[in-house]
Design a binder for these strands. Structure first.
Lengths: 210, 210
DNA sequence: ATTAACATACCAACTGGTCGGTATGTATGA
DNA sequence: TCATACATACCGACCAGTTGGTATGTTAAT
């Protein structure tokens, strides 16, 4: 029984995610979610004590899946290469392939969405979004620091700056992707960032050429 | 009397802009706007034939102000320098100063906001947002092409890619700025982008040093 | 005297949320 | 083992408040 209940909860969350991603949080009504799942008010308020509670659970659920994916990509990249620059490059190309893969539209980032509707959310939720973005950034920082320690950058650069840069480029890419309905935009940003890295760490490029 | 009417319309739009920027479009009710302006339903529906119509007028109004600002920055930069690289750099630093200036929070980009709530808007509005972003990008493309024509890039680069890159970085920066409540994030993205340009166009940097 | 520019009163539909009820599970004890 | 006792999972009617929108004023400028 508990397994079926969890399945129901995830059905609600999955439907909510799709709706929220295309209509926003305030624009998505509880009834919308119920229509999409063929469930009723009773079910909804059994699993969530309010709509705001759903928002919180939805964000945690989303972040969990999101972070797991990134960690998997990173672990694979680290297993495949010893050199941190190689690891980073593979991570980014893997991510680009994932973005290019014609999976379930509409694409977008729920952190960004919550950020642009933040008046509706409790400080807990806003803090969680910020923390998650920080964790994401921190993953990059660690890797960039390894690269910087190994290869002198052609111009002064900090790991933090580079990490924030790629995160911003991805977020911005997703916006352009939605606005233009052009599925390739985000991956192109990642590609362009790799171009920058090649220029910034010339000795890493030479090493590979050798 | 017509002047007073236009003033009322702008009062409504200005209030709507602030509210929409912090609560989203669906999250902002007509009553919210009226409460903020001390006006009534009669006034609102005299100026806008529906809430959706307000959304459209709001976007046009916003884009007009936005584009005017960018054109002003660009005109100033072009008046101050002959070299396109110098023009570009001043444009970016001017923009950074504007972003850093502690003006009216909350910061953010209405194009991004509409993009993340696009289910509520007519195709007209969505198309307009896309067109405006394209126009913004096209301004950069023109300038980057001038730079590329003059200084050979250290690695293959197209004006279009670079233009999309800076637009994405700004959009992403604004998201991080909101999420972290850190007013400096967006300007930092622009700075970092200039760092990239210095690397990409080394001969331009040499020319300046000489 | 018209008309533009607003105010006021009101409406049907929808909003998030509650509540009593039911069916189906699970734990316990004799 | 099998009835008792309770908990979980869900249903659907209902509620008060809010939503966008309208119909009918009133006032003031042209």
């Amino acid at each position: 029984m508990r397994a079926k209940a969890e399945a129901t909860r995830e059905r609600l969350l999955a439907a909510a995610k799709n709706l929220v991603m295309s209509k926003g949080f305030a624009g998505t009504s509880v009834d919308d979610v119920l229509k999409a799942t063929d469930l009723t008010k009773g079910a909804f308020f059994h699993h969530f004590k309010s709509k705001a509670d759903m928002a919180e659970q939805l964000m945690h659920w989303y972040a969990e899946g999101d972070m797991k994916m990134f960690r998997t990509f990173m672990a694979e990249a680290e297993a495949a290469h010893d050199d941190p620059m190689d690891q980073l490059m593979q991570f980014l190309t893997d991510f680009e392939n994932y973005l290019t893969d014609p999976t379930n539209p509409p694409k977008g980032c729920m952190y960004a969405l919550y950020t642009y509707e933040d008046d509706h959310f409790e400080n807990d939720v806003k803090g969680f979004v910020a923390d998650t973005l920080q964790t994401w950034t921190a993953m990059y920082i660690r890797k960039f620091q390894e690269v910087i320690d190994l290869y002198p950058p052609a111009r002064p650069a900090t790991a933090k700056r580079l990490a924030e840069m790629i995160v911003a480029m991805i977020e911005g890419g997703l916006i352009l992707e939605r606005a233009y309905k052009n599925p390739g935009m985000t991956a192109r940003q990642s590609e362009q960032f790799r171009e920058y890295l090649e220029l910034l760490f010339p000795t890493a490029a030479e090493r590979k050429a050798a």
